[in-house]
Write a protein that binds this DNA or RNA. Structure first.
Lengths: 210, 210
DNA sequence: GTCGTTTTTTACCATTTGGTAAAGGCACGA
DNA sequence: TCGTGCCTTTACCAAATGGTAAAAAACGAC
């Protein structure tokens, strides 16, 4: 059984685990954890259900594995925010990258949203150990910028929240947006322009009239 | 069978349907459609499973009934936005009311989010016939205000989207926010202040330097 | 109270679903 | 070519779940 393997996984193992996780991302993000079935995942992965169980300990293990891999990529843009860079440029670049992720990886966004919506039953530890320290670190960075007068005074924590809220909304509420903006391409263009403009106004460098 | 009753429902019917829908809101919003079971709903409603089926045609019918009732209340704040009022005040009032709804009715918000996340399989008609016309009406109102120079020039559709995104985020991503802001009360205060400040900056009446 | 109607319960059922057992297939080194 | 160990499939299973049948209980007009 490869699940507990401390040894190097074979080429076949790597390939099949990847296929399973790709299929699972697809199915889980579309139906949620309980809505997804092993049969669906197996079919999407092009293999039999017992074969899934051969590579992973069970449904929950697959879900956790997908979430774990996801978290890295998900936090990367925030991690990249550079304290040494120009404040406004750094934050706007972060916003843009989050928008790009919503456009390019909507499945990942929805999987994450699904998990949080249900109360993060399988991800609470990750939030504590992965997300929270990074969040607090970057809050401190932004507060530093504000203290230096290089950024409009604002609540740094709430600012990051609102960046998440808006950017992820475009992926998570796609079904709704599609109804309101039938022209997808124009919608994305308007969205990119709008969020940039929005946060630009919010963060305009502090006027010395403070 | 009361489901197809064109006749007036009895007092017992009204009471029990209400109890069922309240229970269903609780369970569906916590576990999603497929994650919720009739047994859970029955227990939460304090009655037997066959009794649920006596009052509703089945699981899906319960879900649809809950969603339908929800939509009215959900759109009310936007509906209340008054074209004759002061632009900035109207929009900020709308934002505040949406924030209050996130705080007071998180289950409703999450139920809605869940449905949209899964592609709105049971709500697409409502989005077309209920949400979309109202959305377009209010977009026109805001565009009118902008044309009159009473509001900072911005994309009205995107503006409404971002109001939804941010306000609903506080309810939908509660599990995440709880990790990042352990002090709930302070979190809500900061949130209310932040969104008000945010949209105030975005919408500041157009300076005549346009 | 009595009778017809509405409401509720008990006892089931068929299907779906996560998971297992065990045999069969396959690759690959000796 | 023959094992040996990794991989895959076939045939199942027990529990959960949406739903039904039909009898029992409660209600309400008279």
């Amino acid at each position: 059984m490869p699940e507990d393997a401390a040894k190097k996984p074979s080429r076949i193992q790597l390939r099949n685990r990847k296929k399973i996780m790709e299929a699972a991302l697809d199915v889980f993000s579309q139906h949620g954890y309980r809505g997804a079935t092993l049969d669906q995942i197996a079919e999407a992965a092009g293999m039999s259900k017992p074969n899934l169980i051969y590579y992973f300990d069970g449904k929950e293990a697959i879900h956790v594995a997908v979430l774990n891999r996801l978290m890295e990529d998900w936090l990367a843009p925030l991690r990249d925010m550079d304290p040494a860079g120009d404040p406004l440029a750094e934050i706007l670049a972060y916003v843009r990258r989050k928008m790009e992720m919503s456009r390019e990886f909507p499945r990942e966004s929805r999987l994450f949203a699904n998990e949080i919506l249900q109360g993060a039953p399988r991800m609470a530890p990750h939030l504590e150990s992965g997300l929270k320290p990074l969040f607090e670190e970057k809050v401190a960075v932004i507060e530093g910028w504000i203290a230096q007068g290089r950024l409009q005074r604002t609540d740094a924590g709430q600012l990051i929240l609102s960046i998440w809220a808006i950017t992820q909304h475009y992926a998570d509420f796609d079904a709704q947006i599609r109804v309101l903006f039938p022209d997808e391409t124009a919608g994305w263009q308007a969205a990119f322009a709008h969020v940039d403009e929005m946060f630009r106004k919010i963060l305009a460098p502090a006027e010395t009239t403070g």
